[in-house]
């Protein structure tokens, strides 16, 4: 099913207005971060600090351009992935030991320190002004101004398509199920001889890498890396979208992210003083009545347990 959507989007994109394509690009890129958050949620962990990996990807791209002169889009995207993953592999060693509220708050604290550092070391990071990111090249080729948006869109689309299909496999794999198992009953996993912390660590690093990848794609689209990427409200936004879209199915983050970006930009235009009200209300409704996210509505229509007993619904 996802390939049909990808194809549709790919065909339709050049026909859409520039800002729609831009919004879609950004939404797709952010969906990568949300996917990572969603994976952690499957393991029962919520991080309020993934903005730091998102920022790592964005600033990683900015530095690579500035210091090393790298302009190739795909290379930069991979660099973002590496930046996020590397930071997560370091911090994850500490964080994988915690759960619940403490995991959430510790992530928050660390991300706020990253934010503070980005602000403070202004002679390196540009402080509140951030760092500018110039146009990327595609295979050495600089797209003409009119096609730039579309080029970035295809990049985002391509990356997302690959990642989503990999995530699709992960979710059905032993590791994917182990993640759900340790959310349900960590003790039992230990009593089966399974690795709890190793699994959490791996998923954490993966989510950090995804956040970095998302950050790099967004910054290419937006052209500017700012400390706010690491701020707690940005991290919170990723968590919200994960809840909205639902993290039970890999298309949840995708649909949630796209919906979110569009609703936000409309709501803001219509009435900037009520966007947060709307957001808060939507979030409250989802938490109270639809904790598995909006995609679960789609899933319920498709839901069936086939012969071998595959549960489509995630644990709630």
């Amino acid at each position: 099913m996802q390939w049909a959507i990808v194809l549709l989007l790919a065909i339709v994109a050049p026909l859409l207005p520039g800002w729609t394509v831009f919004l879609l690009s950004v939404a797709l890129a952010k969906a990568l971060v949300v996917l990572g958050i969603g994976l952690l949620m499957r393991g029962g962990l919520v991080s309020f600090g993934h903005g730091m990996y998102y920022a790592a990807g964005a600033y990683g791209v900015a530095f690579a351009m500035k210091l090393m002169g790298i302009r190739e889009a795909l290379v930069l995207a991979v660099l973002g992935l590496v930046a996020g993953g590397l930071l997560a592999s370091v911090l994850g060693m500490l964080l994988a030991r915690y759960r619940g509220l403490f995991f959430a708050m510790l992530n928050l604290a660390l991300s706020m320190m990253v934010y503070g550092a980005l602000l403070k070391f202004y002679w390196v990071t540009g402080g509140t002004d951030g760092m500018a990111v110039r146009q990327a090249t595609f295979g050495g080729f600089v797209p003409p101004a009119g096609l730039l948006r579309v080029a970035y869109f295809y990049l985002s689309l391509g990356v997302v398509a690959i990642v989503v299909s990999m995530a699709h496999r992960l979710v059905r794999s032993p590791m994917g199920y182990l993640l759900r198992a340790l959310r349900d009953n960590e003790v039992r996993v230990n009593y089966m001889g399974g690795w709890v912390e190793q699994t959490i660590y791996r998923v954490y690093v993966l989510s950090g890498g995804l956040a970095g990848l998302g950050g790099s794609l967004v910054v290419l689209n937006v052209g500017h890396a700012v400390p706010d990427f690491a701020y707690w409200s940005q991290s919170g936004e990723f968590v919200f979208v994960a809840l909205f879209g639902g993290y039970g199915h890999v298309l949840g983050p995708l649909s949630g992210s796209i919906l979110f970006e569009f609703v936000r930009s409309y709501a803001y235009k219509v009435s900037p003083y009520t966007w947060q009200l709307l957001l808060g209300a939507m979030l409250a409704l989802v938490i109270l009545f639809l904790p598995e996210g909006l995609w679960s509505l789609v899933e319920r229509r498709m839901a069936r347990r086939d012969r071998w007993g595959w549960s489509w619904r995630p644990s709630s």
Binding site: G44, V46, G100, L101, A104, G236, V239, F240, L243, Y273, T274, W275, Q276, L277, L279, G280, A281, L283, A284, I287, L288, P291
Partner: peptide, 26 residues
Amino acid sequence: IYQKEEVLVLLLTFAIFLMLEDVMKL
């Protein structure tokens, strides 16, 4: 939602915060 996970409850209070922010602006 008291019976739900603590983090979920936290998120609900965050939702309330967001709503109240705009209510105060209005």
